[in-house]
C-alpha cells in the first residue's frame, strides 16, 4: 500500500484517500467547443512517467490536494504544503525521501521504486 503525502495529515495509507485522477484544467463551459469539453472529460495523458494528480483525503482532513506521482514506480515528489492551493504548480521543489528533506511527508521510505 502506498503512503500518500497529505499536506495536513502527513503520510497516510492509500486506503485513507481517494485518487481522483490526473489534474486537468477545466475549460470555460460557456465557450468550450464539443471537442474541448470531450477532451476535458475523457482524455488523459496516462504516461508511464510523472503525472500531477488530485487526491482527496477521505478519512483525514477531507481536503483536496495535488501531488506528483510517477506512474511506473509510484514514487511521489513535490508534496504540497498546508495552504497550497489545489492546482497551484508552484510547490517547493523538494523530492520526497531525498536526503535533507525534513519538510513535508516522507512518503518514499516504504515504497522504493522497482
Amino acid at each position: 500500500m502506498l503512503l500518500v503525502p497529505c499536506p495536513h495529515c502527513g503520510p497516510r495509507n492509500q486506503s485513507d484517500l481517494r485518487l481522483l485522477g490526473e489534474a486537468v484544467p477545466r475549460p470555460n463551459p460557456n465557450t468550450a467547443t464539443r471537442k474541448e469539453w470531450g477532451d476535458y472529460l475523457y482524455l488523459r495523458e496516462n504516461p508511464a512517467d510523472w503525472v500531477t494528480e488530485t487526491w482527496y483525503c477521505r478519512v483525514g482532513c477531507r481536503q483536496y490536494f495535488t501531488v506528483e506521482r510517477h506512474q511506473a514506480t509510484n514514487e511521489f515528489r513535490n508534496p504540497p504544503l498546508p495552504g497550497d492551493k489545489v492546482g497551484n504548480s508552484t510547490y517547493t521543489t523538494i523530492t520526497v525521501g531525498s536526503s535533507g528533506s525534513q519538510r513535508g511527508a516522507n512518503a518514499n521510505s516504504e515504497e522504493q521504486p522497482s
Binding site: 502506498l2 486506503s15 485522477g21 496516462n46 508511464a48 511506473a72
Partner: peptide, 13 residues
C-alpha cells in the same frame, strides 16, 4: 486497483 499505475506489484491489502 483504485490507483492508475503501470506497476504490476501485488499488494497485501
Amino acid at each position: 486497483d483504485p490507483l492508475a499505475t503501470y506497476s504490476m506489484r501485488g499488494s497485501l491489502s
